[in-house]
Structures are given as C-alpha cells and as structure tokens.
C-alpha cells in the first residue's frame, strides 16, 4: 500500500536531495545510497537475531555470552563506522571550500533577512544583486558567502549541495557547482520566524555566455535604480 505512492513519486523533485544536479549533491547522494544499503543489511541482521532469540528458545546458545558481545558489540560496528567515518571525512575535505578540487571559484554573497534572500555578485562588473533569484554559471564552482542581517537563516539548494547557516556576525562559506542548466528550488532551512515557510528562492543556472548577459542586465537595472534614487 505504501509502496505505490513511493514508486510513483520516486526521488525526483525540484527540492529533492536525491535528484542531484551537481557534483556536491551527487557525491552526498552516493554516500546516502551506500549508507542505506549497509544500514538496511545491519537492520535486517539484528532484527532477525532479535526475533530468533525471542521466538526460538536456545537459538544461538552455542555461542557464549562473551562471544555474542564481542561479535555483535565490537566486531560488527567498529569496522563499519571506521570505514564510514574515513570515507565521510575524505569527502568533507574534498567538498569544503578549502581550495583543492575545484579552484577558480566565483564568489557570490547570500545576504539573508526576514524573509528574503539578496544575492550579490562582487566578481561581476558593476557588482549587481538580485533578490530571491540566484544566478550562477553552469560548470563553475561557486563559493556562497552566507550572512544575515537579523536572525539565523540557512541557505539550502538540495539539488546542488548541502546547507550553510547565515548567522548574523559571521560569514560562512559553502561551495557548490551546477552541472546542468536549469532552475532549482532553494529555501531557508533554519527556523527564522513566521515567514520561514515562505522564505524560498530559485537558483537559475545558465550557460557561461548567458550568465554574462544576465549579469549585465542586472547591473543595468541596478544602475538605473541607483540613478532614480
């Protein structure tokens, strides 16, 4: 009964972390599927042991109590968590904005306030900005510098990568890359007041030439607004 809607909806969706559109979210999704597989195996194994020991008196009594504890308490979890943690930390080193894998990054500031996002593009001529729409070029690593003017918000584009908190008084950096053009959903993930529900934004990933054109038109509108004031 539950399986039907699951099969219908699958993992797709404009906000789905399981529908990756960039290398960061891709690699995290791979980690998830691997952990799900191992986790499911462990769960089935342990539950089988629970049911057998409860329902079949004498099951496993040939293994001494000490043997049970060593096998299940030490030999089962320790290799699993060791492999997992090494893999996850290696992945972290790779995905964090520490130089390395993706250099030549583009810097974009995400300024959060109750309840919208303002994106500034200091690397583009005229330093334009946009509200609730984030423009990025496809195929280039982006460093999102998240700050907040009031309370704590959190920048999250599930299809591109993890989140980064926008904390007042701090500037935290998240590295992302989109590998395909298109429009991706983004939202505020940290509760930030009654407008939390509506604090969404869109990421528009453009081919590089198109991106330049969007930046120019943003600068132009920005300048016009500046002159009007």
């Amino acid at each position: 009964m539950i399986a039907v809607p699951l099969a219908l909806s699958g993992c797709a969706g404009n906000l789905s972390a399981l529908d990756p559109a960039g290398p960061v979210s891709q690699s995290i999704a791979e980690l998830w599927w691997a952990m799900l597989l191992v986790g499911a195996l462990i769960f089935v194994l342990v539950m089988a042991l629970v049911l057998l020991t409860m329902l079949r008196p004498g099951f496993g009594s040939s293994l001494s109590p000490k043997g049970w504890i060593i096998a299940g308490g030490l030999m089962l979890p320790i290799p699993v968590i060791t492999l997992l943690i090494v893999y996850a930390l290696m992945q972290g080193e790779r995905l964090l904005p520490l130089g390395g894998a993706f250099s030549d990054t583009l810097r974009i500031e995400a300024r959060a306030r109750q309840w919208n996002w303002e994106f500034h593009y200091p690397d583009s001529p005229g330093a334009p900005f946009s509200t609730d729409v984030l423009h990025i070029p496809v195929g280039r690593a982006i460093d999102i510098v998240a700050t907040s003017e009031d309370v704590i918000h959190s920048f999250w584009v599930p299809r591109l990568g993890g989140k980064i908190d926008a904390t007042p008084g701090h500037a935290a950096v998240l590295r992302l890359r989109a590998d395909q053009s298109g429009s991706f959903g983004g939202l505020c993930a940290e509760y930030c007041g009654t407008g939390h529900t509506i604090m969404r934004f869109t990421v528009e990933a453009h081919e590089p030439a198109e991106y330049e054109r969007v930046m120019q038109s943003l600068s132009a509108t920005g300048t016009q607004r500046g002159q009007a004031q």
Binding site: I28, L31, L84, I85, A88, L89, G162, K163, A189
Partner: peptide, 11 residues
C-alpha cells in the same frame, strides 16, 4: 557523517 548531515540537517 558530516557531508550527509549538510543535506539532511533541519529536514
């Protein structure tokens, strides 16, 4: 696991 939590945190 840190990278997975970046996605799953606060969801």
């Amino acid at each position: 696991m840190v990278p997975f939590d970046w996605q799953a945190h606060d969801t």
